[in-house]
Amino acid sequence: METYLDYSLQDLLLFSSKVYFRSLILYNAKLWPAQILALFAGLSLLWVCYKQPRYASYLIGTLLALAWTISGTLFHLSHFQEINWLAIAYGWMFIVQGFLILIWCISQPEKFHPLNGGPKEPWNKWFLFGNLVILLAVCAFPFITLLDGQPLQGAQLFALFPAPTILATLGVAYCLAKLPLMLLVIPLIYALIDFITTNMLNSIMSYIYLMIMGILVLYVIIRIKSNRKNNTQ
């Protein structure tokens, strides 16, 4: 074990930025036209969170579980592991996250219902913020690749790529107000890993991951404060 622990983070970066960005393009080309379905799934998630139809909690849980499982299986296990053997571990992390979301959603559906029945102070503003985050994850995120000077063929979409899937999950968290905090452990770990990776690749994505971690930590703080307030009342 000692021999593995003395590797630096840079030792574990096995590919160049050029290879990384080209791999995103190849992945999208391989999956086309699944991107249309992914976009539809993302917009459905937004609609369910905002409109809160009947069975909203089950729909949210199922969509998120599918998104995590698909991006873990297709992106990490089937594609990214070709240039990064660590992606095998990431892929399983994503599958476990999908499984946990599904289990929690089935066993405690009330925790997956948007704002547990309707917007209430102080959560109504965060509910709107959550919807905005989902909108960004689904519709704006694909264009971030342009900031890295890369073509849109490498656009990252919700349910097919890790980062927008994590961001949309956080958006959902803000809409739900009671999402089990345990479900944020894997997103935080992965966001940290990919922040380090993209930072070493000098990608703009590192700032996005910083933003994701910030949104996640803010959510935890709000939840803790909210719980304390409820306990004292």
């Binding site: 096995l14 590919f15 160049s16 050029k18 290879v19 080209r22 791999s23 190849l26 070709e82 240039i83």
Partner: peptide, 13 residues
């Protein structure tokens, strides 16, 4: 070949 030859299935690379 560290980093430089890790190009996966990319035919052009």
């Amino acid at each position: 070949s560290w980093i430089t030859f890790n190009v996966g299935p990319d035919t052009q690379l």
